[in-house]
Every structure is written in C-alpha cells, then in structure tokens.
Design a protein around this nucleic acid. Structure first.
Lengths: 250, 250
DNA sequence: TGTACATCAGTGAACGCGCGTTCACTGATGTAC
DNA sequence: TGTACATCAGTGAACGCGCGTTCACTGATGTAC
C-alpha cells in the first residue's frame, strides 16, 4: 500500500513535469493534487531532490523499456531494422513524453546533482544500441573500413575500396581514425555496451548515438522549426543515414 | 547612458544565469546586484520574459560571432579546415558559457515562448555551416554520391564507386536517398543557408549539423561522463567524421 | 541670466503568491500478551 | 476474548524565504522662453 502511494505520487509529479517543467516541480503542488497536506509527502520522499531522482530514474527506464521493446521485436539478423526500430522508439518516446525527455537528456536541472542510482537505468538505451552494432559487427554484416589489424572481416561498405596496412580494406579518403587517447574508452565500451568491436567502430557508434539524440533534441527543442516539415519521414531517413555512418548495411 | 545600463543589466543577468540557471533567473536578484530597487529594472525591461528574450538573442549572437570569427580566419578553399574551425568554435563557446548554451540549445524554458526577434540571430551559426558545405559543393570539393541528375560533378568520396541513373557516381550501398517530402525544405534551405546544393547534400548537412550539437550537448549535459575521457581529441575526431559524412574532403 | 516646466530614472511600500522544510500532534491499525 | 502498547500515515500550523508586478512618489536633469 505504501508502494502504491509512492507510485501515485510519482505519477502526479510526472504529470506536473509535463505542465510546469522540471524546475517548476513542487512538492506542495503534488501534495495538493494528492489531497494531502504538503508535509505528508515527506513520508514518501525525504526531499524534493529525492522525488526528482525518482522521476529521472523512471524516465530512463521508460525510454529504455520502449527502445528494448521495439528493438526486441525485430529479427536478430536484421541489423538495420533493429537500428531503425531503436531510433524510432527513442524519438517516439521523446515526442510522447517531451518533458521527461528534457529532464533526462536536456539541460541539467540547476542545483540538482544526479546521484549514483541513476547511472544503471541511464545506460539501457545505450546498451540496446551498442548490441545492434556489436551483433552486426560480429555477424560480419558491418561495413568497413576498419582500422588496420583490428577487424574480423566484413563487407566493404560505403567506404569503398582500398588497401590498409593491416590487410583490411581501408579506402582512400575513408573515415578519420580515432585518436589514440580513445583506446582506454574503447576498452571500457567493449566491456560494457560494445563487446568485441574495434575502436573505430566503437567511435563511430558513439557519434551516431550522439547524432541520434541531436536529431531528437533539435526536433523537440524547436531548432527544426521552419526547417523540416515532414518530420517523421525525415527522421527515418536521417536515422538510416546515421546507421549507414556507423557501418550498418541497407 | 540608457544603453549602458541596459547592457549592465543583461551582463548581471547573464552572470546569474551561470549560477542559477534559466528558470532561476530573477528580476529582483538582478536589481539587488545592480544596487537598485526591483521596480527600477522595469524602466529597462517591461517583464522578466523580455529580459530572458534579450539574453537568448545575446546568446545566439555570441555563439554566432564566435563561430564566424573562427571560421573566417581560415583559407576560403580549406573547406575541412573551415568545418573543423566552426565545430570547434561551437564547442568552445558552449564550454565557456554552458548556461547560455543550455538556454538557447537546451530544453526550452517552461512557460516561455520565444518571440520572432530570436530567429534572425538563431540562424547565424547555421548560416556559417551552410556556407561551408555550399562553398565546398560549388567548388567541386564535396564528395559524392549525388542523387541522380542533381550534381555538378565533384570527386568520388567515401561513397566509393558505382553508376547512378543520372550519370553521377552513386555507389552500391551508398547513402540513403532523402524522402520526396524533403524537397520543399531543400528549396527553402537553398534560398537561405545552403545555396545551390542538391537535396541529398542539404539533408546530410542537416544531419551533420544536428549531430554536431548532439555531441556538444552530450558532453555538456553529462552523457559522456565515464564514457569519453579525452574530450578535446575525441571531439576533433568526431567533428572530422561528421564533416566526412557531409561529404567534405580530408 | 533667470525662471517655469517637462521628462524620466529611481524609490519604497505594498499586493498576493508559492515554495521547502520542521515539528509536535492525532488517531487508526495491528500486534503481543 | 480483551487490554496495553507500538507503529506510523497523515495533520495543521508555523518558519523564513523569494518572487513578479503595481503604484504613487521624489528629485535631479535638461530645455524653452
């Protein structure tokens, strides 16, 4: 029964988030809508920040669940399909919950410091996206070029043809090579979200990941106003292009 | 003298933005720091929203000026250099002024509706970036592929080789083709920031533009925490990759 | 050169509002003997 | 079966705070004659 009420409080708080924004979230307003006195809420959340943390975790989880579900419905070998499904789910969830999206992927709430508990849920979307790239790579479906010596083969993709020093195809004028300082990051990524992929694949996956959220944020935050009219179609195209950038096939 | 005081007010407001965030911006606090009584500020700004609008316009202008300056210092034919300079300037300005960046490119301020006056300054950065792509295209330096029939030639780039129906090189497994619904948008873009470029070049420029801000936002808003350690070098690499994505040469 | 007047930047008090958090408390519920 | 007690959800008042905006006002400055 306590859990039930806790959930009801976060539901109301989420609804208020949608009308007032994160900075306008108020314990008193939540209590009012609950038909409680403001101090009663302190039985459930010891401060406003704790409530905010709960909302952030919920937001990450909701986005993660939406992406997992959409991506999970695809054939495992359909890597571009999985990518498009994941991208589309991110966008659809963001459009359906713009204030929650802003809360977790937008500007930080001033004066609020995200606690450790948020990092697990925060990575769910990244895990899905990483798995797509990883699976495609290990399935030999990811287009080159690879940085010399790291790749297991794979088709020559939009990079075209050419010969790299390590025997893998590296096209003339191919992709830039990640800086050496990226190596430790790549190691960490391999251990978590991008098992088995070479550094340059990981680096481009990261850029595509940031690009995906750049597109969604631009759309939601108004930068595409008077620029793009048919947003659904354009987004699908853009997501496909980013997937191609990351090396995914057609 | 009136202009002087107006500037002083916005300066103080900008400083407060940096410590309290946009939602915490308060006319009273500004007045306090000015050594004025709160109502005196109304001589200069008739409401809090008007002050916010001034700050947004200043923010867009500052970002625009920084990008224009950095990009303007490059040799005109050095398209990739111009691109890297512009990207680097966006990021450097954002890091130097994180709250102003959040104000203009982050989540919208709840309850605030941006007036028309903001759209001019808002486009300064886009104009610079568009000019780089446009110049490179018209200079014949932009890599293919083009969508059939639209291009003026240009080198075959990361797309590799292949033959398109219109005679321009379109590689097997090349870039996706923008949806037909994008045509009117492309027309509009050609008239403003991307003169003369074909639709698919415009579309990829748009994606690279969103990707650039996705990278900057991810870095500033904390998504790269525990992911990327050497941010300067990685960003340079990522910007180069996005430039390549948009078709720029090495 | 001197006076009358208009302008307008800045004052000070007030309006009505909402906020987070604390604290001693009430009163229902369930448990132990 | 009945009594004493502990638990704890929710109350109500209060603390001290800041906010945007309004309004009648003061008093210095500059201008017109």
């Amino acid at each position: 029964v306590r859990a039930e009420l806790t959930r009801e409080i976060t539901d109301i708080a989420r609804r208020q988030l949608a009308t007032e924004g994160a900075a306008g979230l108020s314990l008193r307003a939540v209590a009012r809508e609950m038909g409680m006195v403001s101090s009663a809420v302190y039985r459930y959340f010891s401060s406003r920040d704790e409530l905010l943390t709960a909302l952030i975790i919920d937001g990450y989880n909701a986005a993660g669940a939406a992406v997992e579900e959409a991506e999970g419905a695809c054939r495992r070998e359909d890597y571009p399909g999985r990518w498009l499904a994941a991208c589309g789910a991110v966008r659809a969830w963001a459009i359906a919950h713009p204030h929650e999206y802003a809360l977790v992927y937008g500007s930080p709430v001033p004066g609020y410091q995200a606690p450790q508990q948020t990092i697990g849920p925060a990575s769910r979307v990244a895990v899905v996206i990483g798995a797509i790239i990883s699976d495609a790579y290990r399935g030999g479906a990811l287009a080159g070029p690879w940085v010399s010596g790291e790749g297991p083969g794979g088709v020559a993709g939009p990079g075209g043809t050419g010969g790299g020093p390590g025997g893998w195809p590296v096209p003339r004028g191919g992709w830039p090579v990640p800086p050496v300082s990226f190596s430790p990051d790549a190691d960490r990524l391999r251990e978590s979200v991008l098992p088995g992929v070479p550094s340059d694949v990981a680096a481009r996956a990261l850029i595509a990941w940031a690009g995906l959220f750049g597109l969604v944020s631009f759309e939601l935050f108004g930068q595409f106003e008077n620029v793009i009219t048919e947003r659904d179609e354009f987004f699908r195209y853009a997501a496909a292009s980013l997937g191609r950038f990351a090396g995914l096939p057609d």
